[in-house]
Design a protein around this nucleic acid. Structure first.
Lengths: 349, 349
DNA sequence: CTGAAAGCGCTTACAG
DNA sequence: CTGAAAGCGCTTACAG
């Protein structure tokens, strides 16, 4: 009846690939894992066979035999839902790929943090991934360290020597965004800072200040206002800035939530964005594309960072198990500046 | 040195549990899987042993042996990032729990949709999960059907007989929200509808209209305005409603993005939310808690729905493999009304 | 209701 | 550079 009748995915195993290529399963396995010690000819034959058969390795089989099922905890404390979700996708994906088991724990106060760590320890995790803001908590890191648990910090602005981390270069990102506004012709650019307890907030502010200085511009003190990364703090900061006599023509906000607040306040005052005011965000969370105008922002590859965090973790766990102590691997991922509707040349006049 | 020295999670297997409980591994396995054909005494002993040893089943082992590694595709086309993320978390979690492999494909236009389906078919998926709005695409469903692929629709307002689905009761949700506003004392309640091509939008509107009628209230025609589920369409709808002579005291928006837009417009006009105007959303996406005031909304258990979708899928695949054809299982999940800051009694006067 | 045997798909060690 | 053997942890049949 149907045009193309498909057999119910008769699973093709590495044995099928091997026999089709006329090699041993071992060789096929090595090719699939990019093991360099395989002859070129063999490699090509196996690859061809795999392609023809549409072979997909069974991850369960792989993990069962090799990874010795590492158990990785993801401990978080009220970051933005959007951020966490994206991170988790990466973590879960990579976890399932490499056969690691992922245990997610949430904590709020310091007491619940203790409890959460304990729960993770009880399940016998090998390592814990710490997204922001927990990645900057000395207390949490110390506790995990004492229990001999490997830690990978995500998006910390202050990587510690012995602890692996994944992050973007917040300083450069802020610098690039500032330059973007300068290139558009803005000179009166204001900054809304992020929560000073979060290390990336500090770096972003510094990137802005230094870039302005490099352009020969002095930023008046009232053009740098505090913020807490929340929408609400953005509302307050925006009111302050937009009521100023020397109102800026562009506002660089340290994250998207606050930038969204700036847009709302600007509209409330009858200012057009970007006609009268350019607004930029940071992080490229969903809100950046939800609101109108959509936000020019710095995209963080959060999902990829989640994947990387798991990979770093697995590497460390393997090292630890085989007795070689490992001294933190620090990955800096590429950010990208996404130009959308909220930034344009300053108004003439 | 450390207060509590932990051995590097010396994996405890089901063999350990069995020997500790003095039973065969089979019995232990049955207990762990809630198999009813196990004596009470045995069950308790095994459970105790598992608890003492802090046993966690190795999912890779389980999946390798049992699930025959079902392959499930998740095909999506530009829903909100937040929604998709939450859904994926559920899908990936359950997938890893049950050892299913999840393949994610994105498509945009109708052509790319064809290509995406083909890619999924090429990898030999057993089934495809269709989140909104694809869950309502006859074309997509037909194509998958012809290839003999099991389909599970997520959040469709119009479940089809032969195709399993997971959803909430959108009609009841809208009805409950309307009642919430009525209970607060509002009588002039307006509605911003969602994209009429999406079945839930229609149900939500109906739930509102019927509940108002049941309360003996007639909704003037100008209090029901169209929307497309986008922030931008919410902006337009809000302007229309708030310029009305007979301005409503509450606006029920068919989703959170549009409600966020209403709040922005209201603030722009100097209206306080909820002092002068109550605003409610639907879905409980991240934006609902990002903005200020936070939105009263209907919470959809999206992550749980993702998990359920995978479970339904696995059930169907198993049936199909064992030759029994199965006629769609329809799960209706519980929504909940989350009261936050954006709704209150109407202004006196 | 309980258990002994076999095997899921893959890769680790061990040989050559 | 290649391969034969063994086994990861679990559960599916098959017996009793």
């Amino acid at each position: 009846m149907a045009k193309s009748k498909r057999r119910t995915s008769q699973t093709v195993t590495i044995l099928d690939v091997a026999s089709r290529a006329g090699v041993s399963p071992m060789t096929a396995s090595r090719v699939m894992n990019n093991n360099p010690r395989v002859g070129e000819a063999m490699r090509d034959r196996v690859l061809a066979a795999a392609a023809e058969l549409n072979y997909r390795p069974n991850l369960a089989g792989r993990s069962l035999r090799s990874s010795n099922a590492a158990r990785i905890g993801l401990l978080y404390s009220n970051p933005s839902a959007a951020y966490l979700n994206q991170l988790m996708i990466g973590v879960l994906e990579e976890g399932s790929l490499s056969g690691a088991q992922i245990l997610v724990e949430k904590c709020s106060g310091i007491r619940s943090q203790r409890a959460a760590v304990q729960r993770l320890l009880d399940t016998g995790v090998d390592g814990v991934i710490l997204p922001p803001p927990l990645c900057d908590s000395r207390q949490t890191k110390r506790e995990l360290d004492q229990a001999n648990i490997t830690v990978v910090a995500v998006a910390t602005g202050a990587p510690v020597a012995g602890i692996s981390s994944v992050r973007i270069d917040d300083y450069q990102g802020a610098s690039a965004m500032t330059q973007h506004l300068l290139d558009l012709g803005h000179t009166a650019i204001a900054l809304i800072k992020g929560d000073p307890k979060h290390t990336p907030a500090v770096l972003r502010a510094q990137g802005f200040v230094d870039t302005m200085a490099r352009a020969g511009l002095t930023v008046p003190a009232e053009h740098i206002v505090p913020g807490l990364f929340t929408y609400r703090s953005g509302l307050a900061a925006a009111s302050t800035l937009l009521k100023l006599k020397n109102r800026p023509t562009a506002i660089l906000s340290s994250n998207d939530d606050m930038a969204a607040a700036v847009v709302a306040v600007a509209h409330g005052m009858g200012l057009r964005v970007p006609g009268d005011l350019s607004v930029t965000g940071f992080d490229d969370t969903p809100v950046a594309t939800t609101i109108w105008p959509t936000l020019t922002t710095i995209h963080q590859p959060v999902t990829a960072m989640g994947r990387t965090a798991v990979r770093l973790m697995l590497e460390e766990i393997r090292c630890k198990r085989s007795g070689k102590p490992k001294a933190g691997n620090h990955q800096v991922m590429k950010y990208s500046l996404v130009k959308r509707e909220s930034s344009a040349a300053p108004p003439r006049g």
